[in-house]
Amino acid sequence: MEKSSPFRLKVSGTNACFTRPEMKVERVSYDVMTPSAARGILEAILWKPAIVWRILRIDVLNPVRWESVRRNEVGAVVPAGTVKTVMNRGRGNLGLYVENERQQRAGLFLRDVAYVIHAEFAMTDQAGPEDSVTKFEQMFIRRATSGQCFQRPYFGCREFPVDFEFLSRELELPAAIEESRDLGWMLYDMDYSGKEPMPQFFHARMENGSLDLRNVEVRS
């Protein structure tokens, strides 16, 4: 499939939580941004069924620092069945009482994060005759440069908004941190091709502050 030229987007924010799937109740973030979170950021700026984003590399610009926050959360979801009954009857008492469903959960979040996402998109078979790589390339550059977005992108959770800045090819890349680390197995992305979304993992290695995703082996 046809693909775009690679783009570079600088993203930063006060906090971030790229939740490890094995620690979801009391959220603990991965040390760095996952490819799937990076994809989510790009999709918040531009996405159409005609394109699919691929993350090529993630540069870590700030040292990894942590912050812990405990919050009162609810552990319930809207019961679709009850809603349906009330909907059909036209009356009833919906609503969720926080005191009955309270859960206190701590979260271990990252703080003062900044990354450069290197990514490209490829066209999918859903592309129409009027869709072309150039069209979406121009659209993305225009949106990312002027700060436009479909929705505010976020770092893992919606309370951690992302500031983004398009880095054109002429601009020099901001320096990544000088640190190499084996980050272990990390979430690559969710595979939505089957009936249920399936997580895929990869062995992440940060080399001089940079996470190369081009030739990683992805396992589900």
Binding site: R143, S146, G147, Q148, C149, R152, P161, D163, E165
Partner: peptide, 11 residues
Amino acid sequence: ESELGNAPAHK
């Protein structure tokens, strides 16, 4: 002015 925005939020 627009739906998608006219300036970066952090600015």
